[in-house]
Amino acid sequence: MIRLLSRNIIRFLVLVLIQVLVLNNIQLSGYINPYFYILFILLLPFEIPGWAVTLFGFLIGMTIDLFANTPGMHAVATTFMGYLRLFILRYMSPRDGYEPGTFPRVFYYGFNWFFRYALILTLAHHFVLFIVESFNFASFGHILLRVILSTIFTLTLIMISQYLIFRK
């Protein structure tokens, strides 16, 4: 239990640092911003209740915001994503539920399941984030393009991480 807690705390810190120090400085042609830190929410254990995931989402979003000097922007998106996770998990749950002791990873539930899971939540997060960021529905096509391109980039990073770091 304590190992689980410390692991998540460390993951939180490492992901925030990667996001703030490296990924926030990458901007490909002004369209693509990878937001790898949402992996933290994706990888939270099944046992954590939905409301806690929502709060954790708010927490990590706010932390990123503090570094990026955009208070509330990421928090809005990550809170929404945390709220949504419970319903996505319910929707995608196997016939006999999630087995105790397993985590939402490729290793336990396969590439197909994890990819769909990560895709839906990443899309949701990016969609909210870019809408809030531009805060202007007139350029909706532009926003959609950014959402799709950034989602591809973020998702690529997440899937790679599943094979390089979270192999077990």
Binding site: W51, T54, F58, P71, M73
Partner: peptide, 17 residues
């Protein structure tokens, strides 16, 4: 809880940006 945290987040959004 989602509602409250979102409200807080939007508050920060509109307050500091």
């Amino acid at each position: 809880i989602f509602l409250i945290t979102e409200v807080i987040a939007f508050f920060f959004l509109f307050q500091y940006n």
